[in-house]
Amino acid sequence: MRADRLLSILMLLQVHRRLTARDLAERLEVSERTIHRDMEALSSAGVPVVAERGQGGGWSLLGSYQTTLTGLNLAEIQALFLPKPTHLLADLGWSQAFEAALLKLLATLPDANRQQAEAVSQRIHLDPTGWHRWEEEMAAFPILQTAIWQEHQVQLTYKRSDGKVVERLVNPLGLVAKGSVWYLVASVEEEVRSYRISRVQSATITDRPCIRPSEFNLAEYWQRSLVEFNANLPRYGVMLRVAPDVLPRLRYGGHFARIEQIGSPDAEGCILISIRFDVQEEACAYVLGFGAQVEVLEPSQLRDRVLQAAKEVIALYTRY
C-alpha cells in the first residue's frame, strides 16, 4: 500500500541520510517514476524532502528532520516477535537486551496487535540448529567481538584445518554464524579471509587501528565465499540403482552425500539416482551401509571397491 511505502521511504532516509531514486526503487520494488510521485506526495504533506543533482546526489530529509512514526503493520509486528536463535544472542551477550527491547515495543502496541504479537511465539518456533550440535570452544569470542567494536587489529594464534598453527595480525571486519558455528571475517594484507573461531587458540587486541576495506559489505562477502566454497568442493559422481523404500533414507542418510537427480522407477520398481560425494572412500562407506538395497552402476572403480570391501567383511565374519 502507498501509505506503507511512504513511511518506508521516511525510515530509509532517516537511516541512510541520502539515497538516489534508483536506490529507493530497488529497495521498495517499484519504478523510479513511482518514487518521484511519492516524493511529491511527501512534500505536499509537509515533509521536507529535498533532491540534490549530480554525482553524490540523491533524496534526503532537510536538516535534522525526524519522524517518530514506526508505521509497523501487523505482519511486521509478528515478524519482530518470531522466536530468535537464542544461543546466538547468548554468544553475543545480547539475550537480555533483546528481551528488554521486545518488552518496550510490546508496551507501545495497541491491545489487538499486542495479543497477536504475544501469540506468535506460541504458534511458531524456529530452531536453526541441526539434529546434532557439537559445542565448540569459544574462549576467543569475547575478545574478537570487543576488537570489532573498538576497530583495533588483533594478533591471532590460529590452528588451520590441516593442523598447522600460524600467527596472524588481522583486521577484524565482522562475525558470521553459520548454523551454530561462528566465524571471524578479517583482512590480512588486503585479502579478506574467514577464521573458524573454535580454532583460534589465542587472540590479543593491539593498539593499532583496524584498516577496513572501502565499501566492504559483510553479507555480500559471505555469500560470495559460500559460492566459491561450493564451486571448489571435490566432486565424485556416482550412479546408483536403489530399492524404492530406501529413497527416504538416501535423502537424509549423510551430510557428505548430495543427490543431484532422481529418475523414474524401472520395471522392477528400482530407481536410478545420481549422487555426488567428495571422494571415493565416502561413497564406498555410504553404499555399504545400505547392503543389497543399493547397487553401484557407475563408476566401475567404485563397484570394484565395494565388492572388495564386501569380500573383506565376509572373510572377517567367517574366519572362525
Rank of each mutant, 00 (worst) to 15 (best):
Q153A: 10
A100I: 06
P83R: 12
K104Y: 05
L156D: 07
V294D: 05
I9K: 00
T67G: 02
A257M: 11
D38R: 00
E29N: 05
G63P: 00
A267D: 14
I314Y: 09
E136H: 14
L156I: 10
A3D: 06
A310E: 12
I124P: 07
G63L: 00
D4H: 02
E220Y: 09
Q122Y: 13
L10H: 06
I35D: 02
E26Q: 13
V192K: 06
Q122H: 15
E191A: 12
Q116L: 07
Q14I: 03
P244C: 03
R208Q: 11
R33E: 06
R193F: 11
N217E: 12
N230S: 13
A25G: 02
F277S: 01
Q150N: 12
I271S: 02
R249A: 14
A177E: 12
I197P: 06
A107Y: 08
D278I: 08
S44L: 05
E260M: 08
E282S: 12
L7P: 03
P48D: 00
S300L: 10
W131G: 11
A51T: 04
D23M: 02
I124F: 15
T20Y: 00
E281G: 08
T70F: 10
V238M: 06
P248R: 08
F229L: 10
E29P: 04
L184T: 10
R133L: 04
C284D: 10
M239P: 07
R251V: 06
K311A: 10
V185E: 10
V170E: 02
R224A: 13
P244M: 12
I262H: 00
Q201W: 07
